[in-house]
Design a binder for these strands. Structure first.
Lengths: 222, 222
DNA sequence: CATGTTTCGTATTGATTGATACGTTTCTTG
DNA sequence: CAAGAAACGTATCAATCAATACGAAACATG
């Protein structure tokens, strides 16, 4: 998966590429793609420009590597929550709770790199903005797929629009990311997640009522 | 309020400052503060650099002017909804519906300038990022104040945490802004708003139940 | 009409941006 | 131990960034 091993001999690297990538990731996370200059990267990574360019080609490639690393190391909770063998509602609860924690980790930048990396961008960096959008859309698609799976399994009413609910949940997570950047605590985001789950229950009940069915189960009482 | 009138004679301006500011606002809205270069502003505003600097001091001042103009001309719906003499729930409904429309206006950049302007920033532009955060926090505070007013008027249960609910609603609006930037339609955002209002009802009921009171009224039925 | 004031247009300014040239050093391989 | 390969450090590249100098032009006021 990692294509960093050298094919043949030569002078060995004087630094740890993973540690350097980690430093770059945190810097991009904090300041975004375009606002992070090579001078800042140089200092944070402890490297000279030729070292950076030899190892990571250019700034754009370095950022994409940082994105992949972020996806693997910082938000594994999302994939884990959605793929776990647990009820749908519990998976969504794990997802939102995980986001509340991941967006407010001590010593880490607040919020999500997929959002902080670039929302608006210059025309030259449009490709980066598009890549980030792709990551965000993938999250939404994964949530929708999980909801569809729960609906097909009879956990959710057949009349429920999974796309609509996925868009709501993704939107809430995006909002949590911005709230985190504005100083919200883990507890604040946890409360936000709980309010969101209340909406979940209301939406599910509404969809079930509109079909006149009563086989809802997990959200029947009050 | 506008301090653009000259005190004494001199050569008149060859351009309309408001139209120029409008062009700058839309450009900042689309690309954000830092990613918008003076070359781009020059072309969009149809002005030479000295014209821009003479009229708006510098890029930062121009951006702050654009922010104020955006606040006055593009999101008046928010203040209107919160200050209207209508029930609290209706005010929130207007607020969210207004956001769904304002974030997807044809011919305008998607989302909200207060978010697209800068989430992450370079150390040099930290002041701009802080100013945007101030605008976002002001929105949250205005929502909280409106909720508190509704609670004090007996429209909402006394046990309701207006700060928590305000944080949720603000977060949802932020999420709507990002969804709009990712291509969501006005209908998508409207659906998101309706799901949010379902959460509203659930939260209010929960707060009322925890107090054991029944004087809720607008959300009693099912 | 003379004077003061403001903006005009043209041509640049110094600083910073992302990215390299080049000769040297240090490793693997045969 | 020679030959090839890769990364090293130093110094710097052209392009773009935000911002101005400067003299001419166009207004208001006396």
């Amino acid at each position: 998966m990692e294509n960093l091993e050298r094919p043949r001999g030569g002078r060995p690297r004087a630094f740890d590429p993973e540690a350097a990538l980690d430093a770059a990731m945190h810097l991009f996370w904090e300041h975004g793609y375009e606002a992070t200059s090579l001078a800042m990267l140089r200092e944070a990574m402890g490297l000279t420009p030729p070292q950076i360019y030899n190892a990571f080609t250019d700034k754009e490639t370095l950022f994409r590597r940082a994105l992949a690393r972020y996806h693997d190391r910082e938000i594994g909770f999302a994939l884990d929550a959605l793929s776990a063998a647990i009820p749908t509602e519990e998976a969504i609860r794990l997802l939102l709770t995980g986001a509340a924690m991941a967006y407010t980790r001590p010593g880490k930048p607040g919020g999500c790199l997929f959002i902080s990396g670039a929302l608006a961008a210059s025309p030259q960096a449009q490709g980066i903005a598009d890549e980030l959008k792709t990551y965000r859309k993938a999250t939404e698609a994964a949530i929708a797929a999980r909801l569809a799976k729960g609906r097909d399994a009879g956990e959710l009413p057949a009349g429920l629009s999974v796309e609509r609910l996925a868009k709501y949940l993704t939107g809430v997570m995006h909002g949590m990311s911005i709230q985190a950047r504005d100083g919200a605590s883990a507890e604040d985001l946890q409360a936000l997640a709980e309010t969101t789950l209340a909406a979940w229950a209301a939406e599910v009940r509404k969809a079930a009522d509109s079909k006149g069915e009563a086989d809802v189960g997990p959200v029947a009482n009050d």
